[in-house]
Nucleic acid binder design. Structure first.
Lengths: 208, 208
DNA sequence: GTCTATACTACGATAGAC
DNA sequence: GTCTATCGTAGTATAGAC
């Protein structure tokens, strides 16, 4: 399937180099085909970029479908269940952000976060918006906080901790004196994040 | 001063569009000069990019000099002072990350974090490395934690919360239903971050 | 559908006038 | 120092053969 290989390469190249930095020639060559097949299948560079965003949204939906489905059925008085749901979602996200295997599409998303294009709508409108909304709802249930705005702001800080694994990767590596993050590093960081989540939720519960 | 204007525009363009995305022609035109003056003053696009990184490092050094100088004189048994220092540093960083006025160079740094070039050495080797090292030391003092690795991992999560303001900006705006962050938004987010810091440090203190 | 050819544009670098 | 003019390269898009 040339289409599929083209998309995989595109996600990698766009993620690493950005929309302007990546070249259709380079993508086509890496996929082992002619550049004009990009025009044929996707209408051009822009179309390929948007298709890459759609595929990323799909991929995200697959990995997040299970925890999101579970968590949306939580009762409004099940604080412990809500807390477990928050951990579940963020842990899964942390796996993606920490692993080198997911570098390409996490970078793609981060670029869109910093400077959104039409591609961001496709990603956020997919499972991503649903994910942060669910997190905010779960925070309300877990802490007893009533104002959704408060929960949303907490969502930003909780997700920020996790996104930081990718967004400040260079600093992480220097600070830990590594070339890449080891399995031990990732385990320790995830443990720290889990502890932070509990500490933060506890503190919100106290003031609610 | 044509040099100064050229650098300002360069930081903006490189920050927004990245090294490949920005064009020397565009930068020169926006600065009101000929493209060849970039060659004359900086030797080329690469040289201009590195000069922009140096200027960003300077700017960061100016805004962080005071809190870093204060904090390095903290006694090893002054847990409260250390905690205040952590708040001080992260609050100042949060101001920069939240404000639209600093969009250009914060984006520049984030790009380098995601995909470091020689420019990252100049930024990290300046005040940035010093900042995260100081944070880790202060965390040790504030919590009684002995292992520097534990403190460094906590540093990553604390800084991640703050960096998230820029790195997930698009999600922040959608979640709060805004075009740009208002002063109220920023105040609320900073208050949440302050509370989170205390909650996290408390939880580390308990287990140390 | 996939390829080769080519057209057109924009880029960075450089030479040389002033 | 700053400008104009130009060169070579790399980019995207497109037409047309198969």
């Amino acid at each position: 399937m040339i289409q599929s290989r083209l998309l995989d390469i595109a996600i990698r190249e766009f993620g690493i180099k950005g929309l302007e930095g990546a070249s259709t020639r380079g993508i086509a060559q890496a996929a082992g085909t002619a550049m004009s097949s990009i025009t044929y299948h996707y209408g051009g560079k822009e179309g390929l970029y948007l298709a890459a965003a759609d595929r990323i949204a799909e991929h995200m939906a697959e990995t997040m479908a299970e925890p999101l489905a579970d968590e949306q059925s939580i009762e409004t008085d099940d604080a412990d269940g809500a807390r477990a749901g928050i951990h579940n979602i963020l842990r899964r996200l942390a796996d993606k952000m920490a692993s080198d295997a997911n570098t390409e599409w996490t970078l793609f998303i981060l670029r869109e976060q910093m400077r959104p294009t039409a591609a961001f709508d496709r990603i956020y409108g997919g499972v991503m918006g649903q994910m942060v909304d669910t997190l905010a709802s779960l925070i309300c249930v877990a802490t007893g906080v009533r104002e959704i705005r408060t929960a949303r702001i907490a969502t930003i800080t909780l997700a920020g901790q996790v996104l930081g694994l990718r967004a400040m990767r260079a600093t992480c590596l220097r600070l830990l004196d590594r070339e890449t993050l080891t399995a031990d590093d990732i385990a320790d960081i995830k443990a720290r994040i889990d502890a932070n989540i509990d500490a933060i939720l506890d503190s919100m519960q106290g003031t609610a």
